[in-house]
Every structure is written in structure tokens, then in C-alpha cells.
Design a protein around this nucleic acid. Structure first.
Lengths: 348, 348
DNA sequence: CTGTTAGCGCCTTCAG
DNA sequence: CTGAAGGCGCTAACAG
């Protein structure tokens, strides 16, 4: 099927033959084993270079039981948050000599299960994952735990399984954000909540409720709209909201795209932001600083989360994977921008 | 170092032993080889499932000389365009049973060379790449061509090497965009050009020049500013531009982030868009529809480009990689939005 | 300092 | 329909 263009693939045997030494000598010379004379090392390396020798990592993996790869599964690669986390993972992995196999579940449970099996077969040295929206049990990951292969969850942690994790303090982030809204003087604060079985969404919702309670604002479930994570979901919930008789004076959206979807609809209806209605999001995506007014939001350190996940993996492969699980919680930071500022009594 | 938790990894030998058949029989049964009785197939598969057997893809790869993986190298994973292309690649790859190893060169030539070698050693079945900004020669890719391993470049094609490619008609895209500006009545159109040794940037520049020429607008090199691809580069060039005595009435930026950086600076200086200066970008990123006014730009079908790249790879692995190279050029489409519209003589 | 040997887990001739 | 044997390329004991 494939012609190797006559350009034979060189193996250590070829080099060994050429130099009339054994394969083991070549193997050792190539890895700078201490008990090989400089002379032979030189000779071997020279020839290797000349012949354009490249070690076959597959063969080596088979023996060493380590492929120097990390599997990563995310719902959708192209989402800003995920691609940024991946960027962080890749950076750390590369520096430690690991390759990263990236897969997307496309928010499908079935596909996620399939990917887990594939990566197990591929003998990745570890697995870093953010589960799909559909994932309600985590049995498929048990395979990795059973085999003692490091497993790190980030962002969307699954329920029903204990392992290493990297998350963000969504509860606190939401709490502080909503508290900020309250302090600005907003009284009727709605929430565009994400799917409630997704933990991050749930926690943001809980943070929202807690802040209200703390400040003696009665919780009103009519002000909560369950949404997805995208612009269109924000727009849809916004239409619903606008069909109401009375409107809230502020909305906290589960993530920036949802907030943006909302803002678009508000603008269409001539509703001033933040004058008539304040808006806040979560994530601090690039769009947050581009929308007018700029969007108040909560920063999640996505790149650093990737760095943490990869670092935990590295710790677990070198140490004992069975040791206690590491649960890293990153802090969030409030980014106050114009979309949530109570206008002064002197409107322009 | 790693304890397999007593949970022994099952191999075909184990199953063979248990059933008192040979390894070959098990191997064949698992792949539904026609010359195996249904009875034994059943038995083997049942036991495999019971023991939670997972084939060792490494061992299989060693024999088959195919790892069922595609290597992908991009400058920066987290950039919208690249992550979207990756998404497209992964989708096609997954459906065809391939895994995707994603690497980022971080715009570094050295790292790119290193990654190419690593992926060669990892015996990927193919390589899909968008070269780094620093890459000025393509010698490192020759290794893949020599071995007859499918190689597909996309977006940033390297010079000095012929291979499969997926690109976009940047020249046409830019040409039509600039023509649109001209037809809107803008006369003094500046260009925030990207790094000129990057082909896509060069082609957009050429498209810009061609459109001017076609419409008899003299080219003025003082109106061309070489930039990078990010917001900050747009901002920097904008400051430079504003230090001039006379300003252009429109600017075509090499990509959306650069356009956005420019727009921010213009707004700060109270320059109205598009009234005082029209702006247009390239890429149609999410920010383009969020900025006020919405940004006129050129759509690159990023996801489809990924699909094309992966599809070409698939064609090349099954057919003969040495056959003629495939050069797929995607078309762009103009997205006219408010940032480039000549205001009617009746300003609000 | 170097060679011999055996094997990682799987797959495919070649023989029954 | 099934088994035995050899090998993919590399590595690590164990001997010299």
C-alpha cells in the first residue's frame, strides 16, 4: 500500500551490522549509557545521523510500558476555555517529553466512553478529562483507576468517582459576583443557569443563591432560567425573560456566551445595559472585552488549569498513582466592567 | 513505580490459556476472521468481555506499522482559527478510527523541528501542519516525504516544499473585501499587514494591492503597516497611524484581532467607525459580531478546512501517498457588516 | 566495556 | 477450522 520510496527505515540492527557491534551496544550508545566507550558512542551517533536514524518509539513503548503520551478528552476543542486549557496541558507535557492525544466527546456520552477505551488501548500514560454534558455516571473511567493509570478531571468533574481534579471555585466566584451586583444596588437579580446536572453550573447557581441569602434578598425561582452554555441559549432565555410583565434589574449568566446572547436581545429591544438591566457573565472570554458595554465577569485561569492538570499527572506518574488524590482548586477573580455598574443619578 | 493494583492486564495469551486454545485462534476470533467457528468466537469474546480485555494497540502497531494516529502541529492551539480547524480534523479522524496527537509550536521554529522528529518517532500515520511564524525553510518535513508518509499543510503553507495543502483563497478574499471598501466610496485605504514572510499575510496584501490597482487607486506604501496577528499588534500600529498628519478613511486589517485592536484605539481617540474611518478584518471570529459596530470581515471555513485536511490524509494513506499532491483551496466569503459601510449623507 | 538472550503483545504465514 | 513458529524494533538482565 505504501511505498517507503526505497528509502529503507533504519533500525539499530542496521547500525549494529554496519559497525560490527551488537544491537545492545548501539541501543546503549544511543542513550549515552555510562558503560560504553566514547569511541563507540561517537561512531554510533555519527552513523545514526548519517543514516537519518530515528528511534521507533512504538517498539520502545512496547517494552517500557510507557508511551509518553497523555490522553485528553474535552467536550469541544474549539471552545475558548477548553482550547486554552489544552494549550496549558500541552505546554507542560511537551517540556516533560510527553505528547498529548486530544479527543473531543462532542458532548456525547457514547463517544466519551468509546474514546476512553481507545485511549486505554493506546496505552496513554495518563488521562485528563472534562466530561461531556450527557455524562451522568463515571463507570468508564474506572478502567483507568483499576489499572493505576493517573486520571485527572478538570472543570466538569463527574459524579460518583473519586480522582484527581482541577477545578475552580465556582461557588465563590459566583458568590462574589452576585454580591458585587447587590452592592451596586441591584435588587431583582435573575440567573441564567446552565444545565444543573453539570457541576460547575450547579455550583454557580448555589453561589448565586448564597449571596442573595446573605444579603437578605429572597430567592425567587421564577428568576432562574436553565440554559445551555452558548450564545443562542442566552438569547432564547432572554426572549422568555422579556415576555414577562416585570423585568429584573440584573442578570447573572452562567458563562460569557450566554451573557452575550442576552445582551444582543436586550439591545434589540432597546433595553439599556446596565441602565435598564445589568449583565454579568463567567469566564472572561475575549468577547467580554469587546462587547459594548464591556462585560463584568469572573476570570477562570484556563491556561493555569491546564498547567495544573498536567503537573498533577506528572506527579502521579513519577510518584505512586495510588497515593491520595490531589484536588486542586483554582481561585477566580472578579473582573468588574461597565455592564454591571449602577449608573450615577446623572445619566448622560 | 506503578503498581497495577493486582489488577493484571489481560492479554490474548491469558484468554488462550483459559480456553485451551492457541493465541492465534484468540487473535483471529477477536477480529472475526472467517475461518473461526462461531462457537469459539463466542467463547473468546465472552471471556474477553468478562476479563475486561483491551487489545494493546502498541503491540499491534509494532507489527502492522500503523499507529492509527495523525500528528497535528499548529502554532497556538488556543487561537480560534486553529482550534476550530483541529475540531474539524478530530471529527473526521475519529470517525475513521484515527487518534489525533496535537502539538503546538508556539510559533517557534526550533520547537516545530523537534515536534516533527518526535512525531516521526511516534510513527504517526500522517502529519497535518500549519507552520510557525518563524519557519522559513521546510527541510524538517522532508523526512516525512522521504518515507512516503502523508503530509498535509494548511493555512500557513511553508515555502520550498511541495506537498498536499489546504488553504483559502486569501488573495481573492482580500481583493473582494478591498473592492467592497472602494465601492463604498473609500479612497484612502490603509492596510495592517501581517508578517510578510507568512504566505497568508502576503497573499492578503497582494489582494489588497490588486484591488487598488484595478480601481485605479495609486498604491501608497506609507499606508501599509507590518503587524503581527494579535490585538496588541493592531493597537500598536493604530497608535503609529494616528501620529500621522493625515488619516486614511478605511483600514483593512490582516485578521480580526488586529482589526479589533485598531478599533479600540480609534474609539479611545474619539474617531468614529465607520464615519471617520471604516475598518475591516479577516477570519470572522466570534469577536467580529460582538464588537460595535460589527466588523466586516472575510469568512474562512476553519472547520471545513480541518475536514479537508483530514480527508486528504485519509485518501493518501489508503491510496498511494506518492501520487500527485492534492491542493485544496477553499473559498472565502465576504461578510459585510456595519464597520465598513459608508454612512448616508444623513448622519444620525 | 560489550555480546547473548529473551521477551514486550500481537499478527500472519505455513502446516496440519 | 486451529496450532506452531517467527518476528515487528527495542531494551535489559545476565554473562563475559
Amino acid at each position: 500500500m505504501k511505498k517507503y520510496a526505497g528509502n529503507k527505515v533504519i533500525t539499530i540492527s542496521d547500525i549494529a551490522k554496519e559497525l560490527s557491534v551488537s544491537k545492545s551496544t548501539v541501543s546503549r550508545a544511543l542513550q549515552d549509557h555510562h558503560s560504553i566507550s566514547d569511541a563507540t558512542k561517537q561512531a554510533v551517533k555519527r552513523l545514526a545521523k548519517q543514516y537519518n536514524y530515528h528511534p521507533n518509539a512504538i517498539a520502545s513503548s512496547l517494552f517500557k510500558k510507557s508511551t509518553k503520551t497523555i490522553g485528553v478528552i474535552v467536550p469541544i476543542i474549539s471552545h475558548y476555555f477548553f482550547s486554552t486549557v489544552i494549550s496549558g496541558i500541552e505546554d507542560v507535557a511537551y517540556k516533560a517529553g510527553y505528547k498529548v492525544i486530544i479527543c473531543q466527546s462532542n458532548e456525547s456520552y457514547k463517544r466519551e466512553v468509546d474514546l476512553v477505551k481507545t485511549l486505554l488501548s493506546a496505552h496513554v500514560d495518563g488521562l485528563i478529562v472534562s466530561v461531556s454534558r450527557e455524562t451522568k455516571n463515571a463507570g468508564h473511567f474506572q478502567l483507568f483507576l483499576d489499572k493505576g493509570i493517573p486520571l485527572v478531571f478538570f472543570d466538569r468533574l463527574p459524579v460518583g468517582i473519586k480522582s484527581n481534579s482541577v477545578s475552580v471555585d465556582d461557588y465563590q466566584g459566583a458568590y462574589h459576583l452576585v454580591e458585587h451586583l447587590i452592592k451596586q444596588g441591584f435588587k431583582k437579580i435573575a440567573h441564567f443557569a446552565g444545565p444543573q446536572h453539570v457541576i460547575v453550573a450547579k455550583n454557580r447557581f448555589l453561589g448565586y443563591k448564597a449571596a442573595l441569602q446573605k444579603h437578605h434578598i429572597p430567592f425567587d425561582e421564577n428568576l432562574v432560567f436553565e440554559t445551555g452554555f452558548e450564545r443562542k441559549h442566552g438569547a432564547k432565555a432572554a426572549e422568555l425573560l422579556l415576555s414577562r410583565d416585570t423585568l429584573p434589574d440584573a442578570v447573572f449568566a452562567v458563562c460569557d456566551p450566554v451573557a452575550i446572547g442576552l445582551m444582543f436581545v436586550l439591545k434589540q429591544h432597546g433595553i439599556k445595559i446596565p441602565g435598564d438591566m445589568a449583565v454579568a457573565g463567567f469566564n472572561d472570554e475575549p468577547i467580554a472585552t469587546v462587547i459594548e458595554p464591556q462585560l463584568t465577569t469572573v476570570v477562570q485561569p484556563a491556561f493555569d488549569m491546564g498547567v495544573s492538570a498536567a503537573t498533577i499527572f506528572l506527579k502521579k506518574v513519577t510518584e505512586d498513582a495510588d497515593a491520595d488524590f490531589i484536588e486542586k482548586v483554582h481561585h477566580t477573580a472578579l473582573r468588574i466592567r461597565n455592564s454591571s455598574l449602577r449608573l450615577t443619578p446623572n445619566p448622560s
